[in-house]
Amino acid sequence: MMKKKLITIVMGMVFWAGLFGGCGQTEVKQDNAITNSSEEGKEEGTAEEKELTGTIDEIKDFMFVVTDENDTPYSFTFEEKPEGLENVSNGDTVTVKYTGTISEVDPFEGEVLSVEKAK
């Protein structure tokens, strides 16, 4: 009796692992779809360019954080280093040009166009 229960549990775990593995693959496909649609948006000029000015707090290889005048931190992630990021350092006041949506709670969805020191 015990053996049968154990086999059922193991089979269930294998089944769930398969499901999660499947989810991982669909997420990759969705990422590609998102990339494609944002490229189409650029061609049509529908992606609206926005700006955020604030103090740059943290610069890493794949993201940076800018805190606005209300002390709200916004994280910007990127795949390729945005234009101008190498010219700024922690504590600088910067203007970030981007498309997409920023939120202090949700991950950044969009593209960083450039980062420059605010004048």
Rank of each mutant, 00 (worst) to 15 (best):
I7W: 13
K119Q: 11
K117L: 11
V28G: 05
P82N: 06
E51R: 11
E116S: 07
Y74I: 01
V112T: 04
F15D: 03
I59N: 01
G84C: 04
T101R: 11
V28Y: 10
V14A: 13
D71W: 04
A47F: 12
T26W: 15
G100F: 03
T26P: 05
W16D: 00
D71H: 13
F20S: 11
L19R: 13
V105F: 08
E58W: 05
I9S: 05
L113K: 12
P107D: 05
G24K: 15
T101W: 11
G41I: 12
F76N: 00
E39T: 09
K81D: 00
G12W: 04
E27I: 15
K5C: 07
G12M: 10
I9A: 06
V14H: 08
S37T: 09
E39R: 15
T35D: 11
K42H: 04
G41Y: 10
M1E: 03
D57F: 11
T55I: 13
K42T: 02
E44T: 02
G110S: 09
V65N: 04
I59H: 06
D68W: 08
M11Y: 01
W16C: 04
V66G: 01
V28Q: 08
Y74W: 01
S37V: 09
P82G: 06
Q30K: 09
K29H: 06
E51Y: 12
D31Q: 13
G100V: 04
K60R: 14
P107K: 10
K81M: 09
E111Y: 09
G24A: 12
G24F: 15
E79Q: 10
A47S: 07
K81E: 01
G45C: 08
T8W: 05
P73A: 02
C23I: 14
E49V: 12
K97R: 14
E79R: 08
E40H: 10
T8I: 07
V105C: 07
S37L: 15
E39W: 15
V115T: 08
E58A: 06
E86H: 11
T8Y: 05
Q30T: 02
K117Y: 09
D57Y: 14
K119M: 06
E86N: 14
V88F: 06
V66I: 02
V105S: 13
E86Q: 13
L6Q: 00
E111M: 11
G110M: 08
T55E: 08
L85W: 04
K60Q: 14
F15V: 09
G54H: 01
N70E: 05
K4T: 02
T95D: 03
E43W: 13
I7G: 02
F76A: 00
V94P: 07
A47Y: 07
N32E: 05
E39A: 15
V115C: 05
E51C: 05
G18Q: 03
K117R: 12
F64C: 09
M1P: 09
T72F: 13
I34V: 01
T35M: 12
V105I: 14
N90Q: 06
W16A: 00
A33H: 11
D61C: 08
F76R: 03
T101S: 08
D71N: 08
C23R: 13
I59E: 03
T101D: 07
I59V: 11
K60P: 11
D71P: 04
N32Y: 14
V10A: 03
K5H: 11
G12S: 10
N36A: 15
S37A: 10
E116C: 04
A17L: 14
G54N: 00
I59C: 09
E86F: 12
V88I: 10
K81A: 01
I56D: 00
D92F: 06
